[in-house]
Structures are given as C-alpha cells and as structure tokens.
Nucleic acid binder design. Sequence first.
DNA 1: TCCGCGGCATGACACCTGTCATGGCCGAGT
DNA 2: ACTCGGCCATGACAGGTGTCATGCCGCGGA
Lengths: 201, 201
Amino acid sequence: MIRVLLADDQALVRGALAAMLGLEPDIEVVAQVSSGEEVLPAAQRTSPDVALLDVQMPGKDGLAAAAELHRALPACRVVVCTTFGRPGYLARAMAAGAVGFVVKDAPPEQLVDAVRRVHAGLRVVDPALAAESLATGASPLTDRERDVLWAAHDGGTVADIARALNLSEGTVRNHLSSAIGKTGARTRAEAVRLAEDRGWL
Amino acid sequence: MIRVLLADDQALVRGALAAMLGLEPDIEVVAQVSSGEEVLPAAQRTSPDVALLDVQMPGKDGLAAAAELHRALPACRVVVCTTFGRPGYLARAMAAGAVGFVVKDAPPEQLVDAVRRVHAGLRVVDPALAAESLATGASPLTDRERDVLWAAHDGGTVADIARALNLSEGTVRNHLSSAIGKTGARTRAEAVRLAEDRGWL
DNA sequence: TCCGCGGCATGACACCTGTCATGGCCGAGT
DNA sequence: ACTCGGCCATGACAGGTGTCATGCCGCGGA
C-alpha cells in the first residue's frame, strides 16, 4: 500500500483526485489538506510515502510546502502538481526537493504512474517541460527587481510601489526599467506578464 | 441512470471527476471532451442528460459551448463549473442557458448533488455568489471600451492597441480613460484586472 | 422631428514613465 | 586593498499616458 497525502486548495478537484487514486488497489489516500500550512502537520501525523502538492494554494504555496516537508521528513517523496507547465516552476520544485512533477493537462494514468514511480525511488519529469526549462534558464532578475515587479502586479502607480517597498520613486523606476529590459518587454505590464509566464516571480 | 457529459481541458482533473462521478451508483459518464468545439458533436452522439462544462477551455470556452448546446439540445441540462467564482461568469452562464453553477472550491458532494438536482429539473446556484452577482451588476462598459480594454490586456502601448483595432490613438486613449473611470481604477493595468475579476471582459 | 447616446476623431495640457548618467554604499571574490 | 556587482538614490529628459473640451456622424426612442 502506497500511503498518499493530497494537498490542493480546490476541494472539488482534491476530492476527485482522491476518488481516482482510491480506485487503485495499491494506493491509499491517508490525508487531504487545502493549504500549504497544513501539509507538514498532516504529514507528521500520517507519515505518508508520497505527498502530492498543488503549486497554487493560498498562503504558503506548494513549492514552499515541498521544501519544508523535504527538510522535516526526507523519507516522504514529494510530487508537485500544477495547472501551468511553466518552466520556472519545474526548476523551483526540483530545488525544493521534489522528485516528481506532473502537469494537470497530463492524462490521468500519468499521475498514478508518477506516484508509483517516485515511491519506487525514481524521478518523474515531463521531458518536454524539462527541455523548455533548461532553454528558458534561471531568472535573470535580481531579488529587488523581482520584488518591484511583483508589487507592480496589480497595476498600481510607481508611487504606490515605492510606498509599499519603502523605496524612492526613482529607484522603483530604475528597477522596473531594468526588469523591462531583461524580460524584453516594452511596458511594465508586459514585463509582469512575461516574468510570470516564465516563473520568474 | 443519469447520463453525464464532461468537458474540461485539463485531462487530469477531467479524469478525476469522471472517476468520482463514476463511483455514484446512479451516475454514468458517457462522454469526455477537452474543448468547447467538441461539446456539441459529443452531445449529439451520446445524448447526455446533464452536461458539465468548465469555463476555462482553449478555443470556444464553456460559456459559448453552453449557449450552443442549449440551443441545439434543450433537453440537456447544463451545469457550468469554474475555478473562479467571478460574479460575471454566473450571470453569463445563466444567460447562456445553464441551470447550474458550481465553483471548484466547493466540496465534492456538492457537484454530485448539483448533477442530481439539475436532472430533477431544479436550478443550482451558490447563494453567496448569486448575491454578489446582483450587487456587482451588469457591465457598465460599452462594447468599444471592452474591446479596447481587452486589447490592452497583454500590456501593449496605446499605439499597439490603435493598430490592432484600426482606431486613432486619441480614440483609444478616450476609451481607456472612460473604462478607467467606470472601473474605479487609476491605471489601465488596474482597470484590466478589475474588469476581468468582475467578468466584464 | 428632435434629442440623447455611443463611436470616432482632433488638439492641448499636466502628469507619469522609461531611460540614462552619475554617484555612494556594501559584501564577495581576486 | 582592490575590483566587481548588486542595491539605493538623485536629477534630467523625451516620450507616453490620462484627462478634458469640442466636434461630427449615425441611430433609436420620446
């Protein structure tokens, strides 16, 4: 029996995934949580063999939860599952100690397959995504540029961003300008979009 | 037996939902498709009692598919299912002839419940969302304002938008200004975000 | 018929943005 | 000690942006 922990904020898909995994004779879902914060306590309580974590979750996201879980319970194999096949996510998931990475576009068998494979000690990564991840490369943005770009995410003015980060407006403009240059965008909005697509935020 | 058609572009969640619904003794998933275009042909082939359509799909989205399906096969009850509980989606789904609206945050039982209820001729709508929908109201944007705002979606300049819509730059600025005023935003980026959240695009 | 509203356009103006030059500060690697 | 890169800041400038006044056209309702 492979003991599985399931983390996804959308109750409907979490329940559906549990039902699907439950159909497999050698898989048992021993815990379900809906946020990153609940992952570690639930894992310590139920000691699962495999943890299936969604990236998009309120509060602590799946990547942060994966890192935390990997440090505290190295025996628990982590599979990261996400809606968006963004190259940056893959790289960050691997850096966080995940051994599997599954996209929600993939056929259902691939998930149960991934659970079995990581339980057997193998790594599971989509080859196409791995190639794209290497091609896109790591984020060229500095920490501060990322902060500023993230603060520009919801469309505030330079003054708003400067206030939020305790910076001068000129500095914010510089960071934005630099980020725009590095992403190849022509406006800050485009830069935010591109950086987000590449997982640089 | 309630015959169900399932439409969701994410193969994993589609399969998981099918597995979950398949566990119910009185429900049978007779068709699964991954895009809005496939909905009508599949429905005509399998004549389901209930169609469960995701809003976010490539090409023709769930709302367009719902309208098409409702016109062609009025006997088939449509339930719209979405990740985002945006008020505008609810209104547009109802206008498209849907009789059910389920958010993916909802508990799993609520989905099977919704399927049974709509099959019994009832409407299924989240009360909180319905209230918010009424409060937000219909879009105050004119058609052109919506077009311009949508064209501004990916962060191009005014000149880009003007080219894309064959308008003068001044006109684009006017429409944007008007849209910014109506949404209560202060920049075009914020206006795009707000309008999107409210389902005005 | 006239009026009002929406789409389209022009021009002007204040303000915001993106870019650049310049300089100071600090920590890391040579 | 020195250099280099990242961070922060200031100031200046061209060009983009948001707003307003004004006008024309076409359409549907009073």
